[in-house]
Design a protein around this nucleic acid. Structure first.
Lengths: 151, 151
DNA sequence: TAGGATTACATAGCAAGGAGTGCAATATCA
DNA sequence: TGATATTGCACTCCTTGCTATGTAATCCTA
């Protein structure tokens, strides 16, 4: 048996992800933020003052990863952690002025990267591609929660 | 302006990559190998005794990343580095008996993960999906080498 | 043929993903 | 109400990606 990486879904997905990651890094580096911070920033721009738990649920990232990312964002002056008004365990994640100020520039950068990656596709192909990815994600999430469906 | 991660290509690609990565990890962990070692193993199973440089070129991974991965594979008893017969700078990467022995099981595991991810797609949709990913990768690689084509 | 450029590899350091563990606060229930 | 379970978060360690840098070997060329 042989195995061709150029037609292996896993290999292609991994390669694509690295290219998007690097593309976004190039775009947003001048603003002082990194690709891993981006999802959290998007969520907080839409609704500031969420807990770490809420961010974890929205972004499908593990709690430990989010804690580390928030540490780096705090270090970089993008967020501050404040006490939760009613739950002594939780903390409220609040954006700093710096984070607010780069919002529109960052949106544009992310849009540019998506645009760059899909530049060769027609509008119909883009919709198709997005739809296929959403279906693959749903399938894999289900196969994790219900592993007996697949062997 | 707003930004919906469920329709952002970059976000979806990243999420998909993490799911494939974890899926593969679950499958191959029992054999004592990890997802990052997989591409190098595939290349060496097809042709043993390559140099690090050859692996880097085939797999589109940076040289330093490959060196670190090979360090872990050497530590885990999957490869050994031998002197190159004619080039004093280079080294020959050779698979151990252990690495040879898990070949077929590992192929099956990778095939299973790809199959699991694409389970919801028809044969035609799978071909389409693979083709779209190949085009996106080509587009992004070109935009890196010729950045002036995109602004 | 000596000196500079290139090549192959190693290493250090950072980012961002994960698992595992521990702690303190909260919730639940007998 | 006291014991137990759950929740929210922090911390440690691992992997895998990157860049930057260093070193030794090889190649090229004036």
């Amino acid at each position: 048996m042989t195995f061709d990486h150029s037609t292996s879904a896993g290999f292609l997905v991994n390669h694509m992800a690295r290219l998007f990651f690097e593309g976004l890094r190039n775009q947003i580096e001048p603003m002082g933020i990194t690709p891993g911070q981006f999802p959290a920033l998007l969520a907080l721009w839409q609704q500031d003052g969420q807990t770490q738990r809420q961010l974890v649920e929205q972004l499908a990232i593990e709690q430990a990863t989010m804690a580390n990312t928030l540490n780096r964002m705090e270090r970089d002056g993008l967020i501050s952690r404040k006490a939760h008004p009613s739950d002594g365990r939780a903390k409220i994640i609040c954006l700093t002025e710096k984070a607010h100020s780069i919002r529109e520039t960052a949106y544009a950068a992310a849009t540019d990267v998506n645009e760059m990656g899909l530049a060769d596709l027609t509008a119909a192909e883009r919709d198709l591609f997005i739809g296929l990815m959403q279906r693959v994600i749903r399938t894999m999430q289900n196969s994790v929660t219900h592993p007996q469906d697949f062997q």
